[in-house]
């Protein structure tokens, strides 16, 4: 710890003041309000709150639609994260060579980070558009199957997954490439001399040495696909068709704002909070123990 060098009674409080006030008002107050609201239900006229204990939570875990959202969310996040990372790692490994122009490639890979998920979704919505999109048109030469995401839940899911992976793919690839370039080639050459083939070298040496990059990208992609994809769902599929793309954040918003079921939505927020806390705890544990540097 640094030696504290400036003796001053009131200045430090003035300096931390803005952040502390904002944190209290916009973080602690709403968090406790969510906890409190989750134990209440709005009265029929919406003018007062009725205490209902844990009823909201009981209802939540019996609600098939909610449980479907849990599955949808996890499927979506895991596919976006694992497929996205696997693809990036595969391409990065194949492209890992000492070549000129890596900085140029990096510039050409990083820009999609700046595109809002909602915009990425709208662009892909048109690519997938059943009547005018280029993708169904191309697929129509191969199969007579109608890839209409307005009607078929899994096509809608594929649409938002592709849009999310597209947005993340560039920097996943850029980071893996940088990670691979940092590995000393002598280590791999030694293994090669010992008779290890390329696949063996990859799993025994490259992949473990890349674990900090993988871990960093894993956390980033999971957080992104769980929380930052609200706009993607809202602007593109609006949770549909039916319920097929109602991820948890979208459902919590819809039940609270459109359904005006404040208590029920707050209970969903509390579950989400628990989920984030678990994810963070996992991140700390894992970061300390399993990752080789």
């Amino acid at each position: 710890m640094k030696r504290s060098v400036f003796p001053n009674r009131w200045l430090p409080y003035l300096l931390v003041g803005p952040q502390v006030i904002i944190t209290l008002v916009f973080f602690f107050w709403p968090a406790f309000e969510s906890l409190r609201l989750s134990l209440y239900r709005a009265s029929p006229f919406g003018d007062r709150l009725i205490y209902v204990g844990l009823t909201n939570f009981e209802r939540l875990f019996r609600d098939d639609a909610y449980l479907r959202s849990v599955i949808t969310s996890f499927v979506f996040s895991f596919v976006v994260t694992f497929a996205g990372l696997a693809l990036a790692l595969l391409l990065a490994s194949m492209a890992n060579a000492r070549i000129r122009g890596l900085a140029v490639y990096r510039s050409l890979l990083l820009w999609p980070y700046g595109i809002a998920p909602a915009i990425a979704g709208i662009i892909w919505l048109f690519v997938f558009h059943p009547s005018y999109g280029i993708l169904p048109w191309l697929l129509s030469f191969v199969t007579a199957y109608q890839f209409n995401w307005f009607l078929k839940g899994w096509v809608a899911m594929a649409l938002i997954i592709v849009a999310a992976i597209w947005k993340q793919f560039g920097y996943n690839l850029a980071f893996y490439l940088a990670g691979l370039q940092a590995i000393e080639s002598s280590v791999l050459e030694a293994a090669s001399v010992d008779g290890a083939g390329p696949i063996r070298r990859f799993f025994a040496i490259t992949f473990p040495l890349l674990s900090p990059v993988t871990f960093f990208l894993f956390t980033l992609n999971m957080t992104f696909s769980f929380f930052d994809t609200f706009g993607l769902v809202h602007a593109v599929t609006q949770g549909g068709p039916g319920d097929a793309t109602s991820i948890l954040v979208y459902r919590a918003w819809r039940d609270g704002f459109e359904g005006l079921q404040l208590g029920y939505s707050a209970a969903q927020s509390v579950v989400l909070m628990a989920l984030v806390i678990m994810l963070t705890a996992f991140q700390f544990r894992f970061a300390e123990k399993k990752v080789t540097y």
């Binding site: 931390v16 952040q19 502390v20 944190t23 209290l24 008002v25 916009f26 973080f27 602690f28 107050w29 709403p30 968090a31 309000e33 969510s34 609201l37 957080t223 929380f227 609200f230 954040v249 919590a252 918003w253 609270g256 704002f257 404040l262 939505s265 707050a266 927020s269 989400l272 909070m273 984030v276 806390i277 963070t280």
Partner: peptide, 24 residues
Amino acid sequence: VVFWMIFVTLMLPVPVRIVSTYQV
């Protein structure tokens, strides 16, 4: 206490506090 208070905010992104932040 201040340090701890600020640190905890790392854990809960806005989407998790949807309705209640709006009320505030």
